[in-house]
Every structure is written in C-alpha cells, then in structure tokens.
Computed example of a mutant assay.
Amino acid sequence: MSRLGPIVTLTAGAVLALGLGVASITATPAADNTAATANDTETASQAPEETPEGTETAAAEPSPSPTDTPTFEESTPPAPKKADYAGRVKGNGGLIAISLRKGKAVGYFCDGKIEAWFKGDAGSGDLELEGFGGAKVTAELAGGKATGQVAVGGKKWSFVAPTAVKPSGLYRASAIVRGARVRAGWIVLKRPQGGFTQVGTAFQDDKRVPIPELDGDSPTSPVSVNGTTVTPEDVDGFIEEMR
C-alpha cells in the first residue's frame, strides 16, 4: 500500500503493405511490307487492303513510369480491443493505469500530489490521451506493455506499464449524497513479492478528503469516503461515462 500526500487535481481523457509489381510487356514486331506492283496499286484503289495471312500486329503497351513503381509502406498495428496496463512512473514515484475497450482508452495518473484522468481513441498501437488543463499521455503498445510519457502541470515523466491482471488495475467510485458529489479513484498494483501498492485520491465536491484503502484481493468491495459508503467499479463499469 502506497499512500501519497495532498494532491492538486488536473482532471479530464502493418501490417507491412508489401507491393512489388513487375510488368513484363512483349510487343510482337510488325511484319515487313512487300512493295506493291502497279496492278496491286490499281486493285488497292478499288478494294480495301488485307493483312497478309498469318501476320499479326500487336500495339506496344507503354512501359510503367517510375511513379508507378510500388513503394514499401509501414503502418502501425491496431490496438487491442481490450487491455489493461499499470506501472510506476519513473522519476516521480506515482502510478499510471491505462485501459482499452473497443477502440476507446482511459487513463489515470496519481503520485499523491498530482492526479489526472485521461481519455482518447485507441485505434492503433500509438496512443494519445488528453486530460484537463493540457495534461497528456502518449504511449506505444507493444510487447505486452505500454511505454510512453505522461505530462501534467508543466512536468513530464516517462513510464513503462506492463499488462495488468486483476485485481491490479484502475478503479473509480462516485455518489451524490445530500447534494454533494463524492468521487474517488485508485490504481491497484500487485507486488511480485506479495501484497499491493495503491495510490488514489478522494473528493467531496472540490474539497479533498481522506482516501480509503481498497481490499487488494477484492477491490470492488464497498468502502467509506468521508462517511459516505461507495462501491468502487473497475474500468468496465465506468468507461462509457468518460467517452
């Protein structure tokens, strides 16, 4: 369990085409013309010319221009339809989580002082997610991990976030109680040596309140946020609200 200090919120959002064309064009040479006799000339004036039997004439086809030659083009592989990534942010100590569902992506970054939500499209393996106030995540999805940078509050850090397997991942809870909106977000990351690292934030309206710890083995169990019971959801429960 990693519990980090007061925060400032910035909230938000191939296949190689191998083309090698080889055009082989052969033109059959036209047959030699035989000089016409005087009688032939007279006959020709009365009847149409006939192509000598057995002689074929083929029009030569134009050779392809240099611009017709196919070139090698590289495209980015598509993003997975469903995937979850979570890991540490280098040089910052915070955590980042990114989840993809059917062409859409959401992300959350928190280090205990700064937090930000992100969203965007996930059509390819190159992600660009936007957050509030110019916050941004860029990442490449390859080799079972998301590798990239997160920029928040004028600062930028790099990260490598491996594929996350539940209960690791991104969680959120929200409720409206007596006219006040309660919301909270968590990243849960299982440690190789056992136990869990967690980071998150909670607010009642715009006021930060203490963040409760999730049950690492059952992170969707109800918890109390500033005296209000809320039920955390994994990303499948709230990604539609962020689109």
Rank of each mutant, 00 (worst) to 15 (best):
A180S: 15
G125N: 11
G153T: 12
K113H: 11
W186I: 03
T147D: 10
S168K: 04
R172D: 04
D111S: 04
D121Q: 12
G112K: 05
K102R: 12
G194P: 02
K156I: 01
F118T: 01
F109W: 05
F118P: 03
S99P: 00
G103H: 09
R181I: 00
A175V: 04
G185E: 04
G154I: 06
T163Q: 13
K190S: 10
G107D: 02
R101Q: 14
L129I: 04
K136S: 13
P162Q: 00
V160K: 12
G179K: 06
G112N: 06
A135W: 07
A116T: 12
K155W: 03
V150W: 14
A151S: 15
A161H: 02
A146T: 06
A139V: 09
G134F: 13
G107A: 15
A175K: 15
G143A: 05
V152C: 06
G179S: 07
V150Y: 11
A116S: 15
R178C: 03
V188K: 07
S99W: 03
G120L: 08
G153N: 14
Q193T: 15
G195E: 01
A146F: 12
D111Q: 07
G120M: 07
G131I: 06
K190T: 05
Y108E: 02
A105Q: 11
A151E: 07
G153C: 02
K119C: 05
G144Y: 01
G154L: 09
T147M: 04
Q193E: 14
V106C: 08
K155Y: 04
G148L: 01
V106Q: 08
P192L: 06
G194W: 05
I187S: 01
G133H: 12
K166N: 06
A175D: 13
Q149L: 10
G112S: 09
G94C: 04
L170H: 11
Y108T: 06
G185N: 12
A164N: 00
A142E: 02
K156G: 04
I114S: 14
V137I: 15
P162D: 01
T147G: 01
A97H: 02
G194V: 11
V160A: 10
E128W: 11
G134R: 14
L100P: 00
R183Y: 05
I114R: 15
R178I: 04
K119S: 14
A175C: 01
A122H: 10
G185T: 06
K136V: 12
G194N: 03
C110F: 10
T138N: 13
A116V: 05
S158L: 03
K166T: 12
R181G: 03
W157T: 05
A180N: 14
S99T: 13
G112D: 11
T138Q: 13
C110P: 00
A184R: 09
L189D: 14
V188S: 06
V137H: 08
K113N: 12
D111A: 06
L100Y: 02
S168E: 05
V182P: 00
G123I: 13
W157M: 01
G185Y: 12
A135I: 10
K156W: 04
R181D: 04
A184F: 07
S168C: 08
V160N: 10
A97C: 07
Q149N: 12
S168V: 02
G107Y: 04
K145G: 05
R172I: 02
A184S: 15
